[in-house]
């Protein structure tokens, strides 16, 4: 993307963090929305794509923390592992968008999204196996919890996030990438 001012990047990050609190509440009425639709992932991935790795990392760390402070969700026991997972999403998304330039925006977006979704889940699994649930976390549990239960969320992220980026570009709220 063409350069946005530091102030605008900061404010977009602040809005993304606020959306990490608001979106899960918006889907509160939908049963199991947290684990199926994964609403907190969307603003973090979007922030990484638009604002870069530092701001993406910050959104990933602060989003779940503020959501816990305001709504109590995610519960304190799951907060550190969720912060790690979302921070990796934001960081990798931003890094990939900086490194990949294929001259086609949607290709850049999809490569960045898919790589960050995979790396984020791998890092979250490693953190869970080594730190949060040592000895109790197997490959089968990892596959089930991160890919089987959350597959609608992954599909929604892959369809929705590029659509939001294009809508924001069309509305001239963020600059065109090429």
């Amino acid at each position: 993307m063409k350069k946005m001012s530091y102030v605008k990047l900061s404010i977009i990050t602040a809005v993304s963090i606020a959306l990490c609190v608001v979106l899960p509440m918006a889907f509160h009425s939908i049963p199991n929305a947290g684990s199926i639709i994964l609403p907190m992932h969307i603003p973090v991935l979007l922030c990484g794509l638009i604002c870069g790795p530092f701001f993406g990392l910050l959104a990933g760390l602060a989003g779940p923390l503020l959501s816990n402070l305001f709504t109590g969700m995610p519960p304190a026991a799951f907060l550190p592992q969720m912060m790690i997972e979302l921070a990796v999403y934001g960081l990798i998304c931003g890094l990939m968008m900086k490194m990949i330039r294929t001259k086609k925006v949607f290709v850049d977006l999809y490569i960045s999204l898919i790589v960050s979704i995979i790396i984020g889940r791998v890092v979250a699994g490693i953190a869970k196996a080594l730190i949060f649930a040592p000895g109790n976390f197997t490959m089968a549990v990892w596959t089930t919890s991160y890919f089987v239960t959350g597959w609608p969320g992954i599909v929604i992220q892959l369809v929705l996030i590029p659509a939001v980026v294009f809508a924001l570009m069309k509305a001239k709220l963020i600059p065109e990438r090429y």
Binding site: K8, I11, V15, A26, L168, L173, I174
Partner: peptide, 9 residues
């Protein structure tokens, strides 16, 4: 929601 939030930003 995203369009309105980014407009505010």
């Amino acid at each position: 929601i995203f369009l309105s939030a980014f407009k505010r930003a």
